[in-house]
Simulated assay, not measured.
Amino acid sequence: MIANWLARLGRALGEGMPRGLLLSRGTVLRALAIAAVGLGPFIYLGTLHREPVAKRADIGVVHPWSRGAARAGEQYPIYASFENGGRVLDRLIAVETPLARLAVMKELDRSSGVVRPIELDELAIPGNSRLSLRPGARQITLVGLKQAIEPGATIPVTFVFSRAGRVTTQVQVENRGQPEHADHS
């Protein structure tokens, strides 16, 4: 599919243009192919992270992620989306990781004009729906990191649900400069 698109684009760019503007169709195709390979991960951002990376019973964890670095002892937010493929509501009741002393579910309240984090005992995931944690809305905060975290690392996390039980996965630590994914917003 991409090869056909690149071939069509190369033909379109090469036809009717003075020879001095383009070295050759082959050069254009090679340049476009290199650009497509480099941009490939960003082109597919809208369709990336559709499948759960971990699943148990009706609950799937889709694209668990975090962003940036943190030092040992600090707090660190993580995010994920949860899909409930069943008909019955399930609840995220706990989050565990060996890399932090504690994990706290939070929602940011803006109703008073001042952003105030509110600790949550659980997160409800209705049947046949998806719940996404996002910056500025809901997050899981790792409190008392036991080691530094750097972009490119992974954080082992177990999400504990009232019905589905324990779902363990790895949270990807992304660079701060990476573009937002469709499921981050």
Results as ranks from 00 to 15, higher is better:
L102M: 11
L102T: 08
L102N: 14
L102A: 11
L102G: 00
L102V: 07
A103G: 08
A103L: 00
V104F: 03
V104H: 09
V104R: 14
V104L: 15
V104D: 11
M105G: 07
M105Q: 14
M105L: 15
M105W: 03
M105D: 11
K106F: 10
K106W: 12
K106V: 14
K106H: 12
K106E: 15
K106L: 13
K106G: 12
E107D: 06
E107L: 00
E107A: 09
E107S: 11
L108M: 09
L108V: 00
D109T: 08
D109L: 02
D109S: 04
D109F: 04
D109Q: 06
R110M: 14
R110S: 13
R110Y: 15
S111P: 02
S111K: 08
S111L: 09
S112I: 08
S112K: 13
S112D: 15
G113I: 03
G113K: 05
G113D: 01
G113P: 04
G113W: 00
G113H: 00
V114K: 05
V114Q: 09
V114N: 09
V114I: 12
V114E: 11
V115P: 01
V115W: 01
V115D: 08
R116D: 09
R116Y: 08
R116F: 06
R116P: 05
R116H: 13
R116I: 14
P117T: 10
P117D: 10
P117N: 13
P117V: 07
P117Q: 11
P117S: 11
P117F: 08
I118M: 11
I118E: 12
I118L: 15
I118D: 12
I118R: 14
E119S: 14
E119L: 11
L120M: 14
L120A: 05
L120K: 12
L120C: 07
L120Y: 08
L120E: 11
D121N: 15
D121V: 09
D121G: 14
D121P: 13
E122C: 10
E122G: 08
E122T: 11
E122N: 13
L123M: 08
L123R: 06
L123V: 12
L123G: 01
L123P: 02
L123I: 14
A124S: 10
A124P: 05
I125Y: 02
I125S: 02
I125Q: 03
I125H: 08
I125G: 01
I125E: 04
I125R: 06
I125K: 04
P126V: 04
P126M: 05
P126Y: 02
P126T: 06
G127Q: 09
G127A: 10
G127N: 09
G127W: 02
N128S: 15
N128T: 14
N128V: 15
S129T: 15
S129V: 08
R130P: 04
R130D: 01
L131D: 05
L131T: 03
L131P: 01
L131K: 05
S132W: 03
S132R: 10
S132V: 02
L133N: 06
L133R: 02
L133V: 03
L133G: 04
R134N: 04
R134A: 10
R134V: 00
R134P: 04
R134G: 01
R134L: 01
R134I: 04
P135R: 08
P135G: 04
P135C: 05
P135F: 00
P135V: 05
G136N: 03
G136V: 00
G136L: 07
G136Y: 00
A137N: 12
A137E: 14
A137H: 07
R138A: 00
R138K: 03
R138L: 01
R138E: 03
R138S: 03
R138P: 00
